[in-house]
Design a protein around this nucleic acid. Sequence first.
DNA 1: AGTGTTGTTCGATATTGTCGTACGCCGTTC
DNA 2: GAACGGCGTACGACAATATCGAACAACACT
Lengths: 253, 253
Amino acid sequence: MAKDQYLIQSVSRASAIIEALSNHNTMGVTEIGKFLGLHKSTVYGLVSTLEHEGYVQQNPQTGKYALTLKMFEIGGKVFGKLDMRKIARPHIEQIMLKHRETAHLVVPDGLEIVYIDKVECTQSMRICSNVGKRMPFHCTGVGKVLLANMPVEQVDEILRKKGMDAFTENTITDYNLLQKELEKIKVLGYAVDNEEAELGLRCVAAPIRDINGKVIAATSVSGPKVRMDDEKIKGIVTDLMAMNEEISAKLGY
Amino acid sequence: MAKDQYLIQSVSRASAIIEALSNHNTMGVTEIGKFLGLHKSTVYGLVSTLEHEGYVQQNPQTGKYALTLKMFEIGGKVFGKLDMRKIARPHIEQIMLKHRETAHLVVPDGLEIVYIDKVECTQSMRICSNVGKRMPFHCTGVGKVLLANMPVEQVDEILRKKGMDAFTENTITDYNLLQKELEKIKVLGYAVDNEEAELGLRCVAAPIRDINGKVIAATSVSGPKVRMDDEKIKGIVTDLMAMNEEISAKLGY
DNA sequence: AGTGTTGTTCGATATTGTCGTACGCCGTTC
DNA sequence: GAACGGCGTACGACAATATCGAACAACACT
C-alpha cells in the first residue's frame, strides 16, 4: 500500500509506547526502551511529548509512566456517536414503514449539519439523500430544530459565518424572521421545512437530547408536498417526538 | 518546565489532528491543514501514520478522515483499572474494619504483582505496605491466587524469568511443589501465605474476576501470625470470597 | 469542455529526532 | 558511610527524517 511509504516514525513510535503502557500498569523510560528496542533518550522525548499532550502522566515518586484517561475521553466521543446511530436505526426504519416516507438522522458538525443515517421509503417518488451530505442549518427542518435548541451566541456565529443563502423562494433569509421561527420551534418542540431547502419537499424534524437535556441530534421525515399535507404532518410529529424520547432514553449515559 | 524542550513536533501535530477529528465528525486532508496551519503534505503523512496505527480511517467515497474506536478501546483499559480501584475501596475498608487487619488490592503486571490499594488496620502491630510496591508472584498469597488462575504457559514464563527466590525458610522454591500448591488453590478458590514472604506474617487472598470469569485482580487480608490463627483465617476466607464476588458484580462490563 | 479543488506523489533540503555521553539522584550492598 | 549500579534527565552533534513546494490525477461543478 502506497500510503505506507509516508509513515512518520516518531508517530509510530509514540503509538507503540501507548500500546505498551496499555498492557502494563506503569513503565519506566528504560523499561519502555528495552521493551520496544529504542534508546532511552528517544523514549524520554516521546513520553515527554505524550505527557505534554495529556496522554500519559509520570508518578513523581516512582518515576514510572502510565496512561491517563484522555484516550478514553476522546474515544468516548467516537463511541457515543456510533452508539447513537446504532440505537436510532431501527427507530427510523420503523417510522419510515409507518408513514411511508424517507427518514433521516442528522447531527450538527461545526457550521453545518451532517446526515449520518437515512432510510428511504420505497415509493417511486421519494426523497433521496446521501449519508455524509452536509447542509446549512437555516433551510432544513433538522437544521432549524437544532438551531432552536442551541445557545444564541452559537446560532449567531453559524449564521454570520455561513450566511443564509436562498435555496428556494421559501427559504428564510431574513435574520429577524428566522429568530421568530426558531422561537416558535422552541415552543412547539418540532420544526417544519416548507419547501425551504427544495421546492416540492416538506419535512418534519424533532430533536434528540442527551441525558442532560442538551440537543445532540435530530431526526426527520421528508416527503413530497403532494403527500405531506398538514394532517399527515400532524401524525408524523406525534410519532417523531415520541420516537426521539425513546432514542434519548436508550442513549442515557 | 525542562521537559518541554524535548517535545517532538510530529507527535504533537498528530495529537492536534486527533483533537481536531474528535471535534468534527470527519475532515479532509486540506481541511485539517487549514484548521491547524499545516501543509497538506505534512497532514497527509500524519494521517496516513495514524491510519496505519489504527486511530483513524478514511471514508473511501468522500476521502474524509474520522477517528476510529481504537482510542476508546485503549482508554477503556485505563478506565477499567481506575474503576476497579474505586469500586473495591469501600469493600476492603469494610473487611479491614471487621477483621481488624490490613487489606490489599493487587493486580498482575508483567512478571510481578503490584499493590494498587491498601487499607491498613489501626492496631499498633500491623502489616504496613506501599501502594505501587511490586512483589514476585510465587511468595505472596495474592500472587499465588493469580498464578493459580492463569494459563500454564504464562505461569511458566513468569517463574522462568523471575525465578523463585526464597524470602523466608517457608517460601516455596521448588517448581513441582508450587504446581501442587497452585492446584490446591485452584480447587479451594483462595490462597494462604504462611510466612512465605515475611516471617511472622500470614495472609489470605482471593481472586476478582471480570465478566468473562477471567481473574484480573486479587484482594488479601494480612496480619501477624500471632493473630492470624486458623479459625480467624477461616472467617476471613468466607468474607473475602463473598466480597470479591460483589466487587466482580459491580465491575460487570 | 473547462475550471477549481482535493487527495496523493515525489524529491530536495532544512530541520528535527536520534542517540551517545554525561550527570545527578536514589536504592542497594558491603 | 562509601561504593556501585541503574535510573531518569540533560545536552549537543549529526544522520536521518519530516516538511513542503511542485506536480499530477481524479472528481465535482458549471
